[in-house]
Amino acid sequence: MPDTDDRGGPLAATPAQTIGPFFGHALPVPDGGRIAPEGHPDAVTVHGLVRDGAGAPVPDALLEFWQAGPDGGLAGAPGSLRRDGAVFTGFGRVPTDAGGHYAVRTLRPAAAGRSNAAPHLAVCVHARGLLHHLFTRVYFPEHTAAHATDPLLAQLPEERARTLLAHPDGPGRYRFDVQLQQSADGAFEETVFLAFR
């Protein structure tokens, strides 16, 4: 039960626990990665690998995406769990496959609100063996000017910022890999993960 702080301070938060190995029959939903309305001419694919510190693909991760629409709107819409193919809900959820690969089909966001942030996808990474989910972001390579003023990217050294950039991967396709841990041989730079305060 939540404890009320005698001083009227904030309630103590419920702690997180590992998602465990058995979420696969519970959390993924049909068409969870089809964020873009069906047949939308501007739809793009964002796909990639989730890897661990040994360079091995992570076959039991679950990625959640939350984003503004092409108009910058962040109101969202119901329907992410039972897609009708017409509504852009702004939310997607996809498990990685046996090879550690994921893919979502979405619309590129515009910058939201008054923020000087560059357009991006917010990502929440869940996986067996993590004690707490991880937050990261996917930025797009077209917004070089906006990246310079983005409150997150602008504070990062180039090699760290690069881990948050999707790479062009053919027409209408972007590649974004999630490296959970820096590999010992340095071949894979660890993705930047965020603690929101």
Binding site: D52, F193, A195
Partner: peptide
């Protein structure tokens, strides 16, 4: 091997 080595930003 799945835990980030770096502290969260």
């Amino acid at each position: 091997e799945r835990h980030p080595r770096r502290p969260l930003l």
